[in-house]
Design a protein around this nucleic acid. Structure first.
Lengths: 239, 239
DNA sequence: GATAGCGGACAGTCCCACTATCCATAATTC
DNA sequence: GAATTATGGATAGTGGGACTGTCCGCTATC
């Protein structure tokens, strides 16, 4: 097909498709003449994936580009691709590993040290994560991306005065385990490498969105039950 | 304290603080002279909340402004505030309610109709959500924000050819229920109105980030177990 | 052979979260 | 009490992100 049909089928405007090709998230069509190219189902599929990652998953185009680059490189071992996927999916929150050497703040601001990067909360948070991993017996390296991301969240909770929220960590972890097992199971049913990799991306990104929506639905239900009054049914998540 | 100290304590640059005041996310200090103002702990706390919502929660400043406006208005009934909070937290994905009247597409693109707004997937997805709500006996209005958001995710899954992923819906819902109960429990322990409202915001936003990180950690663990080989431990979520 | 569509290049747009510069005044330091 | 630094307020500028518009010369199709 030509670009116009691709646009019509996918709902993505022609200039936007051209833009995606320029940005490297979508492969160019195969040229049949100096100014004529063909696109196929693969392009359409890729386009739908891009839109889903962009609109539902909230990824940036550059993150998508990195993920898809790894997906498209047959030389990459699968587990590396998955690492890239998970890495780009995490919005690079706070938990950066910037260990020390934090000088340059106005002058003698070390006594306060409330910036995001480090601070006492971060060290505590990293310990909390390490303790969690040990407690649950998870086979996870304590400085991988997800662990640092979690530490960032915990540090943020402490900073906003809701350190008590971490009491729910084990409830959350209990919930995360079966979900992760189910995700893995879904992925294992794929056979082709491309399908496998793509399902990891889809599962990680859209799965997170799916759980988020379900959690909010469960909030509505739980508060409707807790507060009885149907007028107050929107107490947590609103009508 | 004055703005400089507020900046030092919170780690937010002075011009940025001024900007937040302009944007209405942070109340102005109380003037002591035409060009001198005082800030207090409340400002610092608010500033930390803004940064957490921005950096960890991924909310936009305008979304934060809407949420905080509702939080700060003592005339707002609590459940309305919570509705606003949940509403702004959802990134306004795909599941918009644009029912019909979709004209204007190039010309006769109705046969294809692959744009995001409507399409056959959206109707199916809404039905799937309604079925889920009925199946689980959740007291939720089928057209609230979270339900539409979920429908958007399901529609996206179908569009990218991963409709099978929705088989995991009930696994996810099983996991969401205890999490939501724990969240509600956490919130109910708050007494002061402001604390209550803030903990809903924090719990909804940071809780989602926390679960996401835990899920990815559980992925790493689950695949380490499934694939045994420690070299492959990063199979799903990467080292 | 007229018309519509195309590939490619590049400039322009809009939004967002800041960041920089000014200025007149206030606080602090010597 | 003079010099230095900080402050509030206003306005302008920046850089990134995701497009969108326009042009050109060529190609496919009626």
């Amino acid at each position: 097909m030509r670009i116009g049909e691709l646009s019509r089928r996918s709902g993505v405007p022609v200039p936007t498709i051209k833009y995606y090709v320029r940005e490297g998230v979508l492969p160019a069509g195969t040229l049949t003449s100096p100014n004529q190219a063909r696109y196929d189902d693969g392009h359409e599929r890729r386009l739908r994936l891009i839109r889903a990652l962009l609109d539902v998953g909230g990824l940036s185009l550059s993150a998508i580009a990195e993920v898809l680059e790894a997906v498209d490189d047959p030389g990459q071992p699968v587990h590396k691709v998955l690492g890239v996927a998970a890495g780009r999916i995490i919005p690079e929150e706070s938990g950066k590993p910037e260990e020390s050497g934090e000088s340059g703040e106005t002058d003698e601001a070390e006594e306060v040290e409330a910036a995001e990067g480090a601070g006492p909360e971060s060290a505590d948070a990293r310990e909390e994560v390490a303790a969690l991993l040990a407690r649950r017996g998870w086979y996870v390296d304590a400085d991988n991306a997800a662990a640092r991301s979690l530490a960032g969240v915990l540090a943020a909770l402490h900073r906003v005065g809701h350190g008590a929220f971490v009491e729910l960590l084990d409830v959350y972890a209990d919930a995360a385990e079966p979900v992760a097992r189910a995700d893995l199971d879904y992925v294992r049913r794929r056979v082709a490498r491309e399908d496998l990799v793509e399902s990891v991306v889809v599962g990680t990104v859209l799965g997170e969105a799916m759980f988020g929506a379900l959690r909010r639905l469960a909030h509505v239900d739980a508060s409707a039950r807790a507060y009885g009054d149907p007028e107050e049914a929107g107490r947590w998540a609103g009508a």
